[in-house]
Design a binder for these strands. Sequence first.
DNA 1: CTTTTAAATATTACCGATAAAAATAAGGAT
DNA 2: ATCCTTATTTTTATCGGTAATATTTAAAAG
Lengths: 252, 252
Amino acid sequence: MGMNLLAQADMIATAGSNGVSVSKHESMTQRAYRIIRADIISGARPPGERLRIEMLKTIYDIGPTPLREALQKLSTEGLVLALEKRGFMVSPLDLDEFSDLNIARIEIEKVALTRSIALGDSQWESRVVAATYLMNKEDAALLASGNGVSDVWEAANAEFHATMIAACGSKWLLQMRDHLQDMCERYRRSSISQSIRKTGDGKRDVGKEHAAISNAVLARDAGLACQLTESHYMKTLDRLKRDLKMVTKPKP
Amino acid sequence: MGMNLLAQADMIATAGSNGVSVSKHESMTQRAYRIIRADIISGARPPGERLRIEMLKTIYDIGPTPLREALQKLSTEGLVLALEKRGFMVSPLDLDEFSDLNIARIEIEKVALTRSIALGDSQWESRVVAATYLMNKEDAALLASGNGVSDVWEAANAEFHATMIAACGSKWLLQMRDHLQDMCERYRRSSISQSIRKTGDGKRDVGKEHAAISNAVLARDAGLACQLTESHYMKTLDRLKRDLKMVTKPKP
DNA sequence: CTTTTAAATATTACCGATAAAAATAAGGAT
DNA sequence: ATCCTTATTTTTATCGGTAATATTTAAAAG
C-alpha cells in the first residue's frame, strides 16, 4: 500500500557522506550525478568546460538520458550552467561569487554553532571530545611531518567542524552548510594553492586554532566559539582569494 | 566565440521572481519544472501523490524525457522524492520537518537582516521606506475590509520582507532564504488554515508589527529588528503548527 | 492465513528524428 | 584589399518513442 512505500523511501533517504545515497543497484542517473559532481568539485572537470553529451557518453559509458538528468540536477545546485539550446557547461569561477559563497557559509556556520552550543546534550559533548581528540592527533602529525595535509587530516578536519554544529537541531541548516561548503571546495581545489597545501601554511598553527575552538565550544561560550571559527575560516579564505585572482575570469 | 557564450549565459541567468528564467522559447524541461513546481507549492499536487510519467504526460502534454528531467531537478530541491525504480512522488508533509524548515528560515533571515542593516546604503533605505509605505497601505486595506488577505497584500508582504534583507551582500544567502520560504509556503498552503486567512488572525495587528520592524530597521537597530521579525514569523508559525497536525501523516 | 507464482503495470535507459545554433564560406560594400 | 553581411553547411541539443527490466498487484496453492 502507500505505507511501505514511505518506509522504503526513508531507507533510500538514508544518505552517505554528502546526501548521496549509495545503493547497490544505483540508477544510471544517480551514478552520473555522483561521479560528475565529484569530478567538478575536485577540478577534474575544469570551470567553464562545456559538457557535451556525446563526449560524456564515451567517457562515463552512460546513455544520454541519465546524463541529461544528472546535469539538470547539477544545474539546480549551481555547479553546472544549463544554456538554453546550447547544452551544459561547468559553472565558471568568479571571485565575487566566492566572497558571496563564503559569507553565506560562515554566517550559517555561526548560526548553527550557536544553536548547537545552546542545544547540545552530553552525548553531543562526548562526540565533540572524540572529534577533538582525533583532530589534535592529526594536527600533531601534520606539524611533525612537513608533508602538508593528507586525506586523513582532511577527513578529521571535516568531521571536527561537522561535529561542532551537529546539535543545531535543523537538518536543513546543516544541508545548506554542506552545499555551500561543496561549492567553496571547488574554488579551493581549482586554485593553484595546492602548493600552499604542500608547503604548509606559514607560521600558522592550525592545531592551536582547533583546540581553542573546541575549548570555547565545551565551555559553551557561543560568542567566542563563533569568533574563533570565523577567523579560522577567514585565514584560509584570504590566502585563497589572493591565489584565485589568477584562475578566475576577469570581470568585463 | 567562447566568450560570447559566457555573456549570453549571464543573460539567461538573469532570472525572474523565483530564480526561474522565463524565456520566450522556453525548453520543455524548464516548462515542466516551472509548472510542476508551482503546482506542488500551491498544493494542486498534494503531498504524497505519486507522479507517474504517463499521467503527467497527458496532463501537461509534455514528453517523458523533459518530465523526468524536471522531476529530478525538483528532487534535488526537496519538493519531490525520487524512489529508486519506483518513480517519483510529491514529498510528504512532516511536522518535524516543518519546524526544521522554519528554524533554518528564521535564522537565515535574521543573519541577512543584521547584515543588511549594517551594510545598507541610502538607496536601500529609500527602498525600505517605499516598501513600508505600500505595506502600510495594504495592511490598512486589509484591516478595513475584513475579507482576509488578498493577492496584492501577499505581494506587498513578500516585497516588504525581501527589501529588509536585500542589502545583506550575499546572493547565496538570499537564494537559500527564498528556497526555504518556498518550502514553508507549501506547508502553509496545504494547511486547512485557509480559514484563518479568511477570518483574519484574531486580535493580531499585523500592520503594527510591520511598522515596528520598519522602524527598527531604519533606526539601524539590528537586535530589535531581528527580535521583532522572529516573533512576527513565530506568530503565524504557531497557528500553522496547530492546524497542520491534521494534514500531516502521524509518526510511526 | 501465509506463501508462491504469474500477469500487468511502470520505470529506466537507449536510439533516432527534428530543430536550432555555430561554423564556415561566399558575396558585396566601403 | 579588408571588413562586414549573408547564405550554406555542419554540428549539436532537444525531445518523443520504444524495448528491456524491475516492481506491484492479484490470484492460486500449500
